[in-house]
């Protein structure tokens, strides 16, 4: 059992979720309520990570953010370090590939709030921010929870992108799924089995918890009839 890899995976998942979810809430709200030119293109672009093979995404990120690219050069100039083969690069990659997992459920949750409710909130004198935190956030909570769990679990299990982008540096970019792969390569099936079981149990527990939690939250006030 590679405890360092487990810790790294949990750290990566947590940071990704902390960065991604607040941004996804703002972005999803915009997508749910605003009409603008090119909206369907933007929505399609957000979905791309769902259909592209992880290695392809990893390749583009490696090339796009590597020290050879202008973006990579710019990042080195600004921060003094490069993203590829570094933990910070894994965070950037995880955030990017998990956008659809965060945006989809949250956007659907925003869309499920009846227009009447949002109109009434504005007409009750609430500012847009007050509407967001007093009315919308409590109502989209199950969607946020779903997005959070999906992203967390997805980062935990991500393999292709991590390997392409971060390589396999212990303590820096060697996550649990890569550790499992390593163990199998080294015929260490015992630790591979333990780590796989940890991931499996984690996935089942988290999904069961979210399902029951969101059912409880959703069942409390129900969706008002339109």
């Amino acid at each position: 059992m590679d405890w360092q890899a487990l810790w790294l995976s949990v750290k990566l998942s947590s940071i990704t979720v902390m960065v991604l979810i607040p941004c996804a809430i703002i972005g999803s709200r915009y997508l749910a309520y605003r009409q603008f030119v090119g909206k369907s293109w933007l929505e399609a672009l957000i979905m791309v990570p769902l259909v592209l093979p992880p290695t392809v995404i990893g390749y583009y990120l490696l090339v796009g953010l590597g020290s050879q690219s202008w973006l990579g050069q710019l990042i080195i100039q600004l921060t003094g370090q490069q993203l590829v083969f570094d933990f910070s690069g894994l965070v950037v990659a995880s955030v990017l590939i998990n956008i659809p997992f965060a945006v989809q459920p949250i956007q659907r949750a925003f869309e499920a709030i009846p227009e009447d409710v949002r109109d009434a909130a504005s007409c009750c004198g609430m500012s847009p921010w007050t509407v967001l935190y007093r009315i919308e956030l409590p109502l989209i909570w199950p969607g946020v929870l779903t997005g959070l769990v999906l992203c967390f679990a997805h980062v935990l299990g991500e393999f292709g992108v991590v390997l392409m982008m971060g390589g396999n540096i212990a303590g820096e970019t060697k996550t649990l799924s890569i550790a499992i792969y390593d163990s199998v390569q080294a015929f260490d099936f015992t630790s591979a089995g333990t780590m796989s079981l940890v991931l499996l149990l984690f996935a089942i527990t988290v999904l069961a918890l979210t399902t029951s939690l969101s059912r409880r939250i959703g069942g409390q006030h129900g969706t008002p009839r339109r």
């Binding site: 009846p114 227009e115 009447d116 409710v117 949002r118 109109d119 009434a120 909130a121 007409c123 009750c124 004198g125 609430m126 007050t130 007093r134 009315i135 409590p138 109502l139 409390q220 006030h221 129900g222 969706t223 008002p224 009839r225 339109r226």
Partner: peptide, 25 residues
Amino acid sequence: IGYVPQHFGLFPHLNALENIVAALD
């Protein structure tokens, strides 16, 4: 203004009293 939408637009997670208090900022 005071606005009553067609489907009332009550805040589903707030009780009747809280719904009214929410409009009294």
